[in-house]
Amino acid sequence: MNLVLASTSAYRKILLERLQLPFDTDRPETDEAPLAGERPAATAERLACEKARAVAARWPDALIIGSDQVAYLDDEIFGKPGTEERAIAQLQRMRGRTVVFHTALALLNTRSGHIQVEGVPTHVRFRDLSDAEIQRYVARERPLDCAGSAKSEGLGIALLEAMRGDDPTALIGLPLIALSRMLRAEGVALP
């Protein structure tokens, strides 16, 4: 069976390469907006499944990986900022606070139709950042394409006070511990 990452995220691709398995990537076309009244964790899990299913027709004999991440604080969702101004505003709102990054993972077997879904939360405590620190960070790293405007795998680690979670790769966008477990359940030999 083919292994397919339903994502064009460079971060997820780099993470998946760690497992040393051959894989393809495919762009899922999904609306990433949360549904009315939907809890943040449920949004991430629904979107991970939708991304996997969005490319399934093109891969009839594959294991398709879908993943999505939602950052939230007090039920306010922090998506990909897209602009420097929104990145600065997100970081100002999160400074000195603990933000939950809920990374959801789906593995769809297109041969059997079976889908496994798991959410992996990471609690991230941001330092009490000054406006100058936030502006320097955004100018240097340009974190416009990641939920919550902070890249822990890069300079964004300097913004943090502490992290708590079961899988350090979840915060970057693809929880490899959970994915390895799912792949083994589908008969993939790892390592």
Rank of each mutant, 00 (worst) to 15 (best):
F23H: 10
I177R: 12
A54T: 03
V120I: 15
A147Q: 04
D145A: 10
G173C: 06
D74S: 12
C49R: 15
D128P: 04
D31M: 02
A41I: 00
E32R: 01
Q135K: 15
G96P: 03
C146M: 08
E84N: 11
Y11I: 03
L160P: 03
A89N: 09
T25Y: 12
C146S: 08
R140L: 13
R27D: 05
P143T: 06
L129M: 11
A170F: 11
T110H: 11
L3P: 11
G79V: 07
R53D: 06
A170Q: 10
E186S: 07
W59T: 08
A147K: 01
M94Y: 05
S9K: 03
P168F: 10
G156D: 09
H123D: 12
L21C: 03
A41R: 10
V99P: 00
G119S: 12
P60A: 11
I157T: 10
K151F: 06
R142F: 09
G66I: 13
V117L: 15
I65Q: 10
R111S: 13
D131P: 10
G156T: 06
R53C: 02
M182W: 05
E84I: 00
M163F: 13
A178G: 05
C49P: 00
L108R: 09
A33K: 14
L159Y: 02
I157E: 11
D145V: 08
L174Q: 05
L107D: 09
E85D: 12
P81F: 05
Y72M: 00
D61L: 05
L16G: 01
D131T: 12
A106I: 11
A41W: 08
I115R: 11
K151Y: 13
K80T: 10
S180W: 05
A147D: 02
A54C: 02
A158D: 09
P143E: 04
R46K: 06
H102P: 01
D166C: 08
V124D: 09
W59Y: 15
K51A: 04
P143W: 05
V100E: 14
L129P: 05
R142V: 08
A162Q: 11
L3Y: 07
R164G: 07
P81M: 05
P121L: 08
E50L: 15
A42N: 09
T110K: 13
R58A: 15
Y11L: 00
L73E: 00
S9Y: 12
E76W: 10
P28I: 01
E161Y: 06
V138D: 10
D31I: 09
E38L: 01
M163D: 01
A71S: 13
A185K: 14
E161W: 02
E45G: 01
E141W: 02
E45N: 01
L3I: 15
R53W: 15
L190Y: 10
R93L: 12
T83R: 00
L15I: 12
I77L: 14
L108M: 13
L21V: 02
P168S: 03
V117M: 12
A54H: 01
R97L: 02
P28V: 01
I77C: 00
D75W: 04
L160V: 12
P143F: 03
H123F: 13
Q69N: 10
A56Y: 14
A89F: 08
S149T: 09
L91S: 05
